[in-house]
Amino acid sequence: MLEVRGLTKRFGGLTAVAELSFSIVQGEIIGIFGPNGSGKTTLLNLVAGLARPTSGVILWQGTNIAGWQAHQIATAGLVKTFQNPQLFPELTALEHLLIAGHLALKRRLGWQRLATLFRHAQASQTLAHRAREVLALCRLDAAREARAAELSYGEEKMLGVAMGLMCEPQLLLLDEPASGLGAEEIANLERVLRDLKREGMTLCVIDHKVGFLRQLADRAISLHHGAKIAEGTPEEVLRNPSVVSAYLGRAHAAI
């Protein structure tokens, strides 16, 4: 469903992503690994429209979306979460999800959503119902009425995932969802991602170490200096000599 060809991003003299090509198939969980600075976040930002590629093609269901704006890409069904949780200060978790329900409403009603400005009861009930489902799926029920500032770091990150799900994406891009989390929170995240996979969601997860994705990912890609150095099952990628040398000195961190 997603095919990236020759994707390159330069910041001045620095090449963050170099001639990268890969594809993602519907229903799989793909993990992208690489040491810090290997261009993972830049890659996701390019795909999600938060940065413009220098060159290359990003085919999403046959259409080149390279250079589109973020909201257009999200509308097309490709949604990204942030490594450092991005939230709406002052609002509760539920309110976050209602805002994130924007896209679902847009897809379902199109321009007819303008009519709901004058009689919105039904539309907002459907939305609130879906928001509660997503909160339950993400194990965030207890935090429903909590404001952004009152959430723990783990809850903040999970709320990012929940907002992404409210967008009803076909492909969800997760930027280091596990970084900074405790063991219990990572186990929780793993459960949530498994549930999503079972529901048929396609996921692209990046992380600086293989860690929890070893069991979860169907396929892995390893990046180094913005280029792909290995691709295969997580185990194959971990055994790949160039991956080992990329992590040299940090081999333990990788495994």
């Binding site: 938060l50 973020a70 942030f82 994130a100 967008c167």
Partner: peptide, 8 residues
């Protein structure tokens, strides 16, 4: 920026 990524 967050609104943008959520399709707004």
């Amino acid at each position: 920026e967050l609104g943008d990524t959520l399709g707004i």
